[in-house]
């Protein structure tokens, strides 16, 4: 049991849930309360799951914030400002995500520049490109959109008036990725690439292709959230999404993924995302000033990392010592 990377994350999630159930009272526990943190978790989770996969493979992706903004604006401009068909706007928005992922992946694998720097560069560049083009095309930084009923139902509806349909997307994305990571050989390749790239390559794993595919995945996840937000809120703003850059990393790290790669799980990332969302929203139910939410998150991040390190050490010493004869 202690061998699993999500043990620490589970304790964290249960801990903050109990904490806010006590201090947030019945309102936090009501369906409206649950919806508030589940909605935050769903949008963050769709990005955190593929970002977590990338971090297990030993790379970072900071560009997700700008991908979200760029895909949002693309959808709003194509289908709103220009009045094009919704499906075209959605496909173009998702293409932006895939293309950015491809660019990130190619630069990281071809140049060996640390992915932190590469994706920081694409984060900045894509933010500038989005802002510049939006102003040139529409003259504003905020564009409205009237989604058709099908798109609204698929991406931007509220189930029983409270729960974003994004929750279902999150479950679908997490389910597929978890299957891939745990049950297929590609998952084993991802662990190997993050554990030791050179040894992985020596066994014949196409390490560069694995990384490029994972960048495409995180770009796609960010673009999907861009589409969801734009349809949910009937429009897009250039500044959307920047909070996802570090929040996704916080969720992944709280979830027990090792920052240097090679260790982690999708269940852990889901739990880390829930922990983040509960703290982020739970504070409103306590009656305390919400200014303190960031402080709690910061402390939680440190505690989570320390706890995860402890559990990892336990996992590395979980052999029965009496039998160590070899």
């Amino acid at each position: 049991m202690t061998r699993r990377p999500e043990v620490g994350a589970l304790i964290g999630t249960l801990g903050v849930f109990v904490f806010f159930a006590i201090f947030g009272g019945a309102e936090f526990l009501s369906s409206a309360g649950a919806a508030s943190w589940l909605n935050v978790a769903a949008e963050l989770g769709i990005i955190a799951v593929p970002v977590g996969l990338l971090m297990i493979a030993g790379e970072l992706d900071l560009s997700v914030g700008s991908v979200l903004a760029a895909s949002s604006m693309t959808l709003a401009i194509v289908s709103g400002h220009w009045g094009g068909p919704m499906i075209l706007g959605i496909l173009l928005a998702l293409t932006i995500g895939v293309a950015t992922g491809l660019v990130n992946g190619l630069i990281v694998t071809r140049t060996n520049v640390p992915s932190f720097v590469v994706t920081l560069a694409t984060l900045a560049a894509l933010a500038g490109l989005t802002l510049g083009l939006s102003r040139v095309i529409t003259g504003t930084t905020s564009v409205g959109l009237k989604p058709d009923p099908t798109s609204k139902a698929l991406f931007g509806t509220l189930i029983s008036g409270q729960f974003e349909v994004a929750i279902l997307w999150w479950i679908a994305v997490a389910g597929c990725v978890a299957w891939m990571l745990q049950e297929t050989r590609y998952g084993n390749w991802i662990f190997a690439v993050g554990g030791d790239k050179e040894s992985a390559r020596a066994t014949g794993i196409p390490t560069n292709k694995v990384k490029i595919a994972l960048y495409v995945g995180s770009g796609f996840g960010a673009a999907l959230v861009g589409v969801i937000q734009t349809i949910l809120y009937n429009g897009a703003q250039v500044a959307n999404g920047q909070s996802f850059v570090f929040n996704s990393i916080i969720a992944v790290v709280i979830g027990g993924v090792l920052l240097t790669g090679g260790y982690g799980s999708v269940i852990g990332v889901i739990l880390g995302t829930l922990t983040f969302a509960i703290v982020n929203q739970g504070i409103y139910y306590t009656g305390w000033n919400s200014d303190w939410a960031s402080l709690i998150l910061g402390i939680l991040l440190l505690v989570a990392v320390l706890m995860n390190n402890t559990f990892r050490r336990l996992a590395l010493s979980s052999g029965p010592r009496s039998q160590r004869k070899a």
Partner: peptide, 15 residues
Amino acid sequence: TFPLMSVGRSFFVGA
């Protein structure tokens, strides 16, 4: 070279 992988997983990396 994969200390954080399980014995079974690391034995078959790439195969």
